[in-house]
Simulated scan of single mutants.
Amino acid sequence: MEFIVNLVFALGAVYIVYSYYFFAFKGKVPQSPAALGRAFAAPTLIWALVLFIISFIQKWAVSPFFSFLSVYEALSTIAAVILSVASGWVASRTSENTQAMNLKILSTIGLVPFSIVTWVGFMSGPTMVVWLLIFAYIPMQYIGYRAYKKYS
């Protein structure tokens, strides 16, 4: 029964992440406040959902073969970097010329919820990974901002 409940939650989380992808990257280009709101979702809600999906995969598919922390930390670290870059991209994807302002707001205010979700997600692991992800948060967002300016 526990597996069924976790599977339903994991499928719901996958659906939300999938919907966010189309909403944030493929949808209509929003104005500045909406772009900033979409960008705040990546390092907070989507990050928490991705951590849940990774822990579900680890618990039910990988744990008989590998240690829990190795796969969980590797996938979570990759996901954190991708979501940090994606949030910089989404904050820059606006119909107004406010990309730099959005990036500054997102970097300063978004660091707190990202840090909280990261600390909770890596409670059982080494703290070095947490510190590396927190210190890489703002540079990764800047990379997303620069990539958006270059490729769009």
Rank of each mutant, 00 (worst) to 15 (best):
I4L: 11
I4A: 11
V8E: 10
F9I: 12
F9Y: 12
A10T: 00
G12I: 05
A13M: 04
V14K: 05
V14T: 10
I16A: 08
Y18E: 09
S19A: 14
Y20C: 11
F22C: 09
F23P: 09
F23D: 13
G27W: 05
P30S: 02
P30W: 03
Q31A: 15
A34W: 14
F40T: 06
L45R: 05
I46V: 12
L49E: 00
V50A: 03
L51V: 11
F52T: 06
I53F: 01
I54D: 03
S55D: 13
F56Q: 04
I57P: 03
I57S: 10
V62Q: 02
S63K: 11
P64Q: 02
F66L: 12
S67I: 10
F68D: 15
F68W: 15
F68I: 15
Y72V: 13
E73Y: 14
A74V: 11
A74F: 10
T77W: 11
T77Q: 05
T77E: 09
I78D: 06
I78S: 11
V81R: 01
S84R: 08
S84V: 04
V85I: 14
S87K: 06
S87E: 02
S95P: 08
T98W: 13
M101F: 13
L103S: 00
L106R: 07
S107P: 03
I109G: 06
P113Q: 02
P113S: 09
P113C: 09
F114Q: 08
S115K: 06
W119G: 10
F122R: 06
G125I: 10
L132A: 15
L133K: 09
L133A: 04
I134M: 03
Y137R: 07
P139C: 00
M140E: 00
M140G: 01
M140P: 02
Q141L: 14
Q141S: 10
Q141H: 08
Y142V: 13
Y142I: 13
Y142P: 06
I143K: 06
I143D: 01
Y145W: 11
A147W: 11
Y148T: 02
K149Y: 07
Y151A: 08
Y151P: 00
S152Y: 12
